[in-house]
Structure formats: structure tokens, C-alpha cells
């Protein structure tokens, strides 16, 4: 499979890259890890006349805690998350997630920024970042702005990014003591998109009451879905099995799956209920261990 011809640009700085994007407009696609874009181009589902490769821009691959946030540079590869001691020990939800995205070879190229900016509701990081209440940093001709993840996904394969903007960083609030998260994905085989997947992040107060909860759903709608009513149902409650079951029921209600080769909508809705139960149980276990 051969992609359509395109002009290749490899800017060396963000300023150069955003200027290029401003000039080229809708005709340009940003190439990050390329593990979604290149397959789409090979299938000619997309044929951008211009490709702007941002991999040559220095300083966009990092993982660090600063100013109350975990800051993930947009070019951080999924395998970098997997190998990070910081992620493994302090961000179990992200660690779960980066282990089930595509396969190990794809994860060596695929970036966290690209996983979000692609706007695919079947990607795994969007639900994780919704559960974590992350922000996305975008840089464009007009400067830098922060976009709350809850308003980032505007439609299927559409995001709040302007045509001249580049996603440069993801900011995840550093979870307080008593926090834990988990990502549970049902996939038919390694490398497939999720039949459904659920991200859960909880914080427990010293009293054992659930102080906050974040729940994100993968591949059960036109965009990644935040199960807000399920989150609200847990807040201020002792997260016993009855509370988990109620949250799981509400999460299933929030899902809007369609029938496809991975299963009928009815099955996927019930799958969301089951996966939410499992994700919450695991998140709570981890939160309890960190109190």
C-alpha cells in the first residue's frame, strides 16, 4: 500500500512548525509517532498534501512532576511511559494504559500527544486523561493555551486544536495521597482497538469516603466519554460494592456504543458495566494501599 504523494516538512522549532501550519492550513497533517496517521495514509483514508514532521523539534519528549502536575511532553513515546519508574509507582492508571495500547513495536514509536490529538474515540489515552482530569497545552500562532481535557474532544477525529496549533504537553494533576487508578480494556487480540475499555481514578479521604472519582470510557461513542453521573454517584460515599454497582450502572448508561464487528451495542453497554466494576475495584485497592 502506497500513500498518495505529499510534501514533507521537518521543522526544527515550534515557531517554525506553527508558522508552517498557519501557512498550509487544512492541507497539512502533523506527523508525531505516525502509528495512526501512516496506516490511514497507506489506506488512502486520508491523503494530506503536506506532512509536518515534528519529531525533529527538540525538548518535546519528557516526563516530570513540576508545579503540581505530571507533565508529559507530546513526543513522549508510549514505551517511555511503560519504562518510567515515576509512572509505574505514582500513576498506575497511565501505566495500565500504556501497556495495552497497540503492541510493543507500535508503542516504541507512538506518542502520548498523538494518541490524544488524533481524536480517535477508540484510542486509550483519551479515557485515561478524562478520568485523571488532565489539561492539554497547545501552542499556535497566537501563543500558548491550556485546554481542559473535558472540552478537548469535539467530535469523531476532531479536537479543539486550531489548524495552526500543536499539542505540546499533557498536564495531569499530581494525585493526592489516597489516590489510585486503573485501566481495564477488553480487546479481541493484542493490537486491536478496545471492544470497550474503562479508566477509573479515585481519591479516598482518611475516613474512607470517596473524595473524588474520574471515569472515562473508550470506544463506546463518537468521542471518548466522561461518565459524569457515575463519578458524581461515588463522590462523598463510602465506595462499597453497592456504590460500585450503582456507578457501573450509570457508566453503562453513559455509553453510546453501536453494533460492529466487535459486538452488538447491547453487549458493549453491559461490558462497560462489568469493566467499570473491575476498574473501580482495582483503583480502590490501589488507593487504599496509598492512604
Amino acid at each position: 500500500m502506497i500513500p498518495a504523494a505529499f510534501a514533507y516538512h521537518a521543522p526544527k522549532s515550534l515557531t517554525e512548525a506553527t508558522a508552517l501550519l498557519a501557512k498550509l492550513g487544512d492541507g497539512a497533517k502533523v506527523l508525531s509517532g505516525g502509528q495512526s496517521l501512516i496506516p490511514l495514509m497507506k489506506l488512502r483514508l486520508t491523503s494530506p498534501p503536506h506532512v509536518v514532521d515534528i519529531n525533529g523539534i527538540q525538548g518535546l519528549a519528557y516526563l516530570k512532576e513540576a508545579d503540581g502536575f505530571l507533565r508529559i511532553g507530546a513526543l513522549t513515546r508510549e514505551s517511555d511511559l511503560d519504562e518510567s519508574e515515576l509512572i509505574r509507582t505514582r500513576y498506575p492508571l497511565l501505566h495500565d494504559t500504556c501497556k495495552v495500547i497497540a503492541d510493543p513495536l507500535v508503542r516504541n514509536m507512538a506518542t502520548v500527544g498523538g494518541n490524544l490529538a488524533h481524536g480517535d474515540p477508540a484510542n486509550d489515552h483519551p479515557a485515561a486523561m478524562l478520568a485523571l482530569g488532565a489539561q492539554v497545552v497547545a501552542v499556535g500562532g497566537k501563543g500558548e493555551r491550556r485546554i481542559p481535557i473535558a472540552s478537548f474532544f469535539t467530535g469523531p477525529f476532531e479536537t479543539a486544536l486550531e489548524p495552526d496549533e500543536i499539542l505540546t504537553e499533557i498536564r495531569v494533576p499530581v494525585p493526592p495521597a489516597g489516590s489510585g487508578g486503573a485501566y481495564v480494556k477488553m480487546e479481541r487480540k493484542v493490537g486491536d482497538f478496545a471492544t470497550a475499555a474503562v479508566a477509573a481514578q479515585v481519591t479516598l479521604a482518611a475516613s474512607g469516603v470517596c473524595e473524588s472519582a474520574g471515569i472515562g470510557l473508550t470506544n463506546v461513542g463518537l468521542t471518548p466519554i466522561q461518565a459524569s453521573r457515575a463519578e458524581a454517584a461515588l463522590k462523598g460515599k463510602r465506595p462499597d460494592e453497592a456504590a460500585i454497582a450503582e456507578a457501573a450502572r450509570l457508566a453503562a448508561e453513559a455509553a453510546q456504543p453501536t453494533d460492529d464487528l466487535r459486538g452488538p451495542a447491547e453487549y458493549k453497554k453491559d461490558l462497560v458495566r462489568v469493566l467499570t466494576t473491575r476498574a473501580l475495584r482495582r483503583a480502590l485497592e490501589r488507593a487504599t494501599a496509598r492512604r
Binding site: Y8, A10, L31, G34, Q35, I38, P39, V51, D53, N55, S79, P104, L105, V106, N108, M109
Partner: peptide, 18 residues
């Protein structure tokens, strides 16, 4: 699969220019 700077990657999913 080939190694690019020591990392195993799928060479069908990378442009030569990269």
C-alpha cells in the same frame, strides 16, 4: 521489524525520510 536507534519498530509504518 528493524531497529531504529536501538528501538524495534515496524518499518512499514515509517517513512524513509524519517
Amino acid at each position: 521489524t528493524v531497529l531504529l536507534e536501538g528501538r524495534a519498530v515496524k518499518s512499514c509504518t515509517l517513512f524513509a525520510v524519517q
